[in-house]
Design a binder for these strands. Structure first.
Lengths: 213, 213
DNA sequence: CGCTAATCTAGAACAAGTTTCAGACTTGAT
DNA sequence: ATCAAGTCTGAAACTTGTTCTAGATTAGCG
């Protein structure tokens, strides 16, 4: 909870981070090993299976070092999510959605992302739980994830400069996306329900669009 | 994580719980003391301040007993939330919202609830974090909270028997509600933003209504 | 009342996240 | 090449959620 100086960079995509000291090659390698170990353990057993001692051992790093790179388990898992999101954004870009309207394209994109998460539900569980459990000390990182998600949605909309209304709609979609995911992961909603809800919320996009098909 | 038999009832509103053994007076009193202690500690310091040993001590109950009543910290906090939600539903009923359209009434209701939570942000933090962190073992309790929230929203809509579309809209509103709350609590969104997003998502209600003003 | 099963208590013990520390190793600048 | 500062390691310690145990209390029943 105390101010932390001289820490290793938290976000590698370097959006507007306040001066992230550059990492040496070995440090970058350590960071990658840690993230890989984290994801591997998460795939096996979800949030609980990502134990800091295990991550440290798997990535051949001392426990103290792990904590220097990621100041908490939550930070680690949120960083893991950033990592995965980047992959996904890349993948999604390759085959853009086909829908007529922006709403359709966004819904299609999200459902595609959803199916990807379905393939590794335990990993999804770990990442999403970390994301929603994160407190203020993780705000910058969570924000970064949020920006990345927004970028994916705006991409799908094909919108250059969205209106404030549209931005609000996008936020609502993100809220729904996270929350629906959680509900599904904890077994309280079916996939069908998630799909319906995603489609429902995506209508907000056309609703807030100046032009219309 | 193991099957738990012979446990004290978890949900007192007795919706469809499978045979909750009736509590003696002293047991009921213990349960109330525990919930009160939990809420008090949460008001002071949020999620982290609700420490099981402290709750046990404050409520004059042995640690083991606390765990017999609430099998985990998450269960305890979710039960605390149920408790608070009931109060709130009662309060909201007293002065029903004034809006013309269903969307307005729902938005007004949610903003009123939001202001109530604002008054005890730490308590809100504890409850909401517990709710979204809950895993499958807490599903019944979380579901109960969800039903209660749905009831509040349907109340505000003044809708007797909603269509499946409307139910989906209500679910989306709940998702947005939780998620916006989290975002605000962790300092990543302003109150103004929360209001806008709530209003945005509430438009879905009119959108899915058969009749219209 | 007296018995039995269930419940409650106090406290130890365990598990996993986090912190700390002394010493070895790297890095960058001179 | 050498030195100072920063980094990494291994291990122990600390914190808080959770479990376990042995004995005291209570509730319900004949």
């Amino acid at each position: 909870m105390s101010a932390q100086v001289n820490k290793v960079a938290k976000a590698e995509p370097a959006a507007a981070a306040p001066a992230a000291p550059p990492l040496t090659e070995r440090q970058e390698a350590r960071r990658r090993r840690i993230l890989r170990a984290s994801a591997q353990l998460a795939v096996r057993g979800g949030f609980d299976a990502v134990q800091m001692r295990e991550v440290a051992e798997s990535s051949q790093v001392a426990l103290g070092t792990l904590y220097r790179y990621f100041p908490s388990k939550i930070h680690l898992l949120v960083a893991t999510m950033q990592d995965q999101l980047e992959h996904m954004h890349g993948t999604l870009r390759k085959r853009p959605p086909q829908g007529e309207t922006a709403a359709e394209r966004v819904a299609e994109t999200l459902m595609r992302a959803f199916r990807a998460l379905q393939r590794e539900p335990q990993l999804a569980d770990a990442m999403v739980r970390a994301l929603t459990f994160a407190d203020r000390s993780v705000s910058p990182e969570v924000d970064q994830v949020s920006r990345q998600t927004t970028a994916i949605i705006l991409d799908a909309m094909g919108q250059e400069d969205p209106t404030p209304q549209q931005l609000s709609a996008v936020r609502v979609i993100e809220h729904t996306w996270h929350s629906a995911l959680i509900t599904w992961l904890s077994g309280r909603a079916s996939i069908a329900q998630v799909r319906v809800d995603i489609e429902t919320v995506c209508r907000l996009i056309d609703l807030t669009s100046p032009e219309q098909a």
